[in-house]
Design a protein around this nucleic acid. Sequence first.
DNA 1: TATTGGCACTCGGTAGAATTGACTGCTAAC
DNA 2: GTTAGCAGTCAATTCTACCGAGTGCCAATA
Lengths: 350, 350
Amino acid sequence: MVRRVVREPTNVVVELDDRKATILKAVVVEHIDTAQPVGSSAVAASADLDVSSATVRSEMVALEREGYLAQPHTSAGRIPTDKGYRYFVDHLQSGVLGSVQQKQVKDFFASVRGEVEEVLEKTSTLLSQMTSYTSVVVGAGHAHATILSVQLVNLDAHHHLLVSVFSDGSVVKHSLTPNFEAKPEEVMEASRQLNALLINTSLETRVQVPSRRDNVANLVREAVSTLHAQQPVMEGEQVFIGGSSKVAEVFEGVETVRKVLAILEQELLVVSLVQDILDQGLSVAIGSEHGFEPLSTCALIVAPVTIDGVPAGAVGLLGPTRMKYREAMAAAEAVSKQLSRHFAGADDRG
Amino acid sequence: MVRRVVREPTNVVVELDDRKATILKAVVVEHIDTAQPVGSSAVAASADLDVSSATVRSEMVALEREGYLAQPHTSAGRIPTDKGYRYFVDHLQSGVLGSVQQKQVKDFFASVRGEVEEVLEKTSTLLSQMTSYTSVVVGAGHAHATILSVQLVNLDAHHHLLVSVFSDGSVVKHSLTPNFEAKPEEVMEASRQLNALLINTSLETRVQVPSRRDNVANLVREAVSTLHAQQPVMEGEQVFIGGSSKVAEVFEGVETVRKVLAILEQELLVVSLVQDILDQGLSVAIGSEHGFEPLSTCALIVAPVTIDGVPAGAVGLLGPTRMKYREAMAAAEAVSKQLSRHFAGADDRG
DNA sequence: TATTGGCACTCGGTAGAATTGACTGCTAAC
DNA sequence: GTTAGCAGTCAATTCTACCGAGTGCCAATA
């Protein structure tokens, strides 16, 4: 293979000079609004720069050469590339949420009641309604939470239900179907022992199980292994997707709609996608930035949720690359902040 | 205005004579296959009737007059009306599931493991994959189930978690946030009393709560009222929707897709729709038969799930009115049967 | 009397040509 | 460096003609 020195001005992130930036911004804003390619004259007219369309044109060829703009075909206007959107998001927009919506979020969290899951679900609906995009709300798993209580309940001779309560307020059940018949007293005894064994441990803690061979010990062993047998990552992650019908509104082309819906169905995928973006320290992934091809026509906005500083999930918004970044990012941020506060300050009320 | 005697043969459900039935069937089958209006010559050629297209035509005008067929425009073929589909479903199709798929269902239920919720969710995916339609799986609520155990767990001074286990294997949690501070011992005592009070009752049973004013009694009262405060209908109903991306495949027109998706988002609506249809004793609702306008271009197939003869939910398939009724109905039926058996016979394994 | 072949008619869909118009890139002048 | 002007490109639109699938009707037929 020939070794070459490749100059990729595309990869070098330079500050654009003022005029180029203004032009890029005008193109992005206009294209987000109209979904049409934007021509030089429109830019010359709209933007607050006093140059002719010819000047705009020559700047545009430069912007195109540098990878910020693209042309669907010769005689059409320009549309932003992913890189163009990225520059726009990073440098050219200010994200303030309208006061009406600010209020909407506040009101929502002031009045919302119910279990964590319900709150997350409703939050997801709220986000989607506010923005007209599909929303994703991820509640973190309880890998680090400690066990407050476990209980073994007898369903019938061969069926027992292991109910575990975690310090983060989550409750998990597991069925046990041992191949021996345990008496109710044995089940109760096993339940007692499990409590003694597991309380205040987390799922990451290995515990010493009894090695005896009687029914009680067998039950205890089966319960512990069932409880610990879950996936190390993301078990207990909760995903709530709101406004999937928006997909049909904001994306064009049945095929795209189908693809996006199909991806939303695989919730684990969505979770890992959101997680990836958060791990990269991003708040927006535009086009193929997340490296996931089927969503290359999408942008995904994420905002972390923390409880007392500890990561506890995230909220996200999924739209086309030409989405309304400012509003959507502001909404995601406001909601994630309020959500964080909601859970941290849950004690205040009453 | 001239007074006229209007004859409405459309409302009279009569058996169609053999030839009309054959023609109707041919039109339905062809149109389901091609999504195109079907012409007289196609019918004359395809069906096993030895008449000319002219004869078919004259029969078709009769079928149209009687409301079984419709014409998009003058020079087009005929498409079935809802009534036409209904007749087809009731009289003209036999529903046997292909042996390959029969096996697929068997294999699935032979290997599926996990909690009820997981099974239902996977079932929903299975159904949707088998048929290419969106599936709905409804698990009945536990209104009639009795309580096996309740437990009050301390989260912190003002937060307690009420965890209830029902005889149907479901587990429900409720947060209690009393405005007084209860000591751990008091919480435990309340938990004990709740158990004594509630075990073997169902949510429909009213119980006698202590009238004392101490913390324990207050906790007990709050717990009982929280537990009983749920919606009388459909609380605890679980809905699993599989293959919503299929909506984009089988329906044409973005607007329709959006509408259907929007409806699927409102899960309670879907549940009541399914319930309605079951209550009417139907297994298919075609077009506007369910009286729900936004879904008037859809057909909804349902099949009840029972556990030991007791209604325990349903499975459903949602598609366009021109869906493949035979296959879809066979699939729904097979899955609902196997699902019923799965839960009834859960003891066998091991 | 039921069926049929034949015929005129309807009307959506398609293919092609012509036109439009929104762009661009280029260049010469300022 | 900026601009006006101009020639060129190409998608989108409109128009036209035409095709053909399909109908309804009717007179002839078995």
